[in-house]
């Protein structure tokens, strides 16, 4: 019996390691290619390790594009989007979950329908709005449409709905208004949901491509994702430098993920089980 379960465990590990290898190979290949010369990279059959690690590929990638600016723009815009969504979505979610008011269902359904619409549909009109208020080529332009989220409202509403009715009844008896109940009673309890939303928003903001590409033309207002796409654009044909650029763009998020992995995993899990 014990033997059998041990054998089973080994089998499971083999499967899992196999899967993990498949997941990791592209990353490893990215790192290895980034340390080769172009000639080494196109050798047939491919060599795994370069003769010497070419760290200068990173220097080259970082000198072609203003990565410092990219980091700054990406971090700032993502942070603002996250805060905005947490605040605005939770407020709306509270109202939709805990207060009765006229046209509630209708408004909620209309907002929810935004989820069904492919994002590209909004591009041109959003661009025109941003340009009309004179915000093109600013970090604010990167943030603005992302401050509001139907998904976030939906997610947090589900979260708020699970709390027992008794929670606010006590508070109402104490004469608290809704904002106080929301802020003092509900928000502290909703922290896991808020973190879940935060992580969702951070990932979306970090990876967003089309919007920053369209709205910000100048290099020093671009995000990592858009900057990387333009590195791949016209004429840059040096694969090792491309890979070096890609690694320069992805490591911060991977680091944050590894540092806060439990929060990430819990947060993502919450979006699935509460949603």
């Amino acid at each position: 019996m014990k033997n059998k379960s041990n054998r089973q465990k080994v089998f499971i590990h083999i499967l899992l390691i196999g899967g993990a290898v498949l997941t990791l190979v592209p990353f490893l290949w990215m790192v290895l290619t980034s340390l080769k010369t172009m000639t080494e990279a196109v050798q047939v059959p491919p060599i795994i390790f370069p003769e010497r690690f070419r760290w200068e590929n990173y220097e080259k990638a970082l000198s072609i594009l203003p990565f410092g600016k990219f980091y700054y723009n990406t971090i700032v815009s993502t942070a603002w989007r996250t805060i905005g969504q947490i605040l605005f979505c939770s407020m709306a979610a509270y109202a939709f979950a805990r207060i009765e008011f006229p046209a509630k269902e209708t408004i909620f359904l209309i907002l929810l329908s935004v989820l069904m619409v492919p994002g590209q549909i909004f591009l041109i009109p959003q661009y025109l709005i941003i340009s009309k208020i004179g915000l093109l080529n600013t970090v604010t332009a990167l943030v603005l449409p992302g401050l509001f989220s139907a998904f976030g409202t939906f997610l947090l509403r589900q979260f708020f709905m699970t709390f027992p009715k008794s929670l606010e009844e006590a508070a109402i008896l104490d004469g608290c208004n809704h904002f106080r109940i929301y802020w003092n009673v509900m928000m502290p309890l909703a922290v896991p949901g808020l973190v879940a939303l935060a992580i969702f928003t951070i990932l979306a903001g970090w990876n967003d491509l089309m919007w920053p590409l369209i709205v910000n033309t100048s290099m020093d207002k671009m995000t990592l994702s858009a900057g990387l796409a333009s590195l791949q654009g016209q004429h840059l044909t040096d694969y090792p430098v491309l890979m070096a650029g890609a690694i320069a763009a992805i490591w911060p998020m991977i680091l944050i993920f590894i540092l806060f992995q439990r929060s990430f995993v819990e947060g993502i899990a919450i979006t699935g089980t509460k949603g």
Binding site: S225, I254, Q261
Partner: peptide, 22 residues
């Protein structure tokens, strides 16, 4: 879990780049 989750925190641009290369 950490290893399997890595692609989810990686930019689509970078993913596309490395896969094209693969």
């Amino acid at each position: 879990r950490t290893l399997y989750f890595l692609p989810a925190v990686t930019m689509p641009v970078a993913i596309a780049m490395v896969w094209r290369w693969l």
